[in-house]
């Protein structure tokens, strides 16, 4: 019985494409979320050796290809995937770590105008308006979206690499500088 549910979960992951929410899967499979979580982990192990993998993303699980096989897939696809520009990535990082954050706060850190970058990130749905700050002018507050987690393959915001501490920043220079 449980074996069938596991197969069903596998099928659901295939059909869903993107991340499948554990609670939704639990409802569909009529199983407690913990059991679904356990089945998902079993599937992850079973897929460990194949061309596909099952990974925790954005609070759920998703079936996707392996990074190592990207070359083969890219040959099949008509165009290359885009990347975020450096300006966009810096802004993205500030929003991800400091959210909720206003445009003025982002600009104070980057030292440049961020209008265009924020607009592009919103357009790509990597960020969204999450509210307004209770200060003069009630400026808009930005935060990250589910698409952000999917884009970077993060299970949740806890998966963000730790922000370098102010003191450590200098020591880590060699490691991160190109």
């Amino acid at each position: 019985m449980l074996e069938e549910r596991k197969n069903a979960l596998e099928a659901l992951l295939f059909v869903a494409g993107g991340p499948l929410d554990i609670r939704q899967a639990a409802t569909l499979l009529e199983l407690p979320p913990d059991t679904v979580e356990e089945l998902a982990r079993q599937l992850m192990n079973e897929y460990a050796a194949g061309g596909l993998q099952i990974v925790p993303v954005a609070g759920g699980y998703q079936m996707c290809t392996r990074n190592e096989l990207a070359d083969y897939i890219e040959k099949l696809l008509a165009h290359e995937r885009g990347r975020l520009s450096r300006a966009a990535m810096e802004t993205m990082a500030i929003i991800a770590y400091k959210q909720p954050v206003t445009r003025a706060e982002i600009e104070a850190i980057r030292g440049v105008n961020c209008d265009g970058v924020i607009e592009r990130l919103s357009l790509h749905r990597l960020i969204k308006v999450v509210g307004r700050k209770d200060t003069v002018g009630r400026p808009i507050l930005y935060g990250t979206t589910e698409e952000f987690l999917e884009y970077f393959g993060f299970g949740g915001l806890n998966d963000l690499p730790p922000l370098p501490e102010e003191k450590e920043a200098d020591d880590k220079k060699e490691a991160t500088d190109e």
């Binding site: 494409g17 995937r81 990347r83 990535m89 922000l163």
Partner: peptide, 30 residues
């Protein structure tokens, strides 16, 4: 400068993550 440097480095780490995850493909959800 220190504050900016922290986020610049965080952005570099995220770029690395992006590069890694870029090679991972998901079916278009039905």
């Amino acid at each position: 400068l220190m504050e900016y440097k922290r986020y610049k480095e965080a952005a570099q780490a995220m770029s690395a993550r992006e590069a890694e995850w870029r090679g991972v493909f998901v079916r278009h959800p039905l």
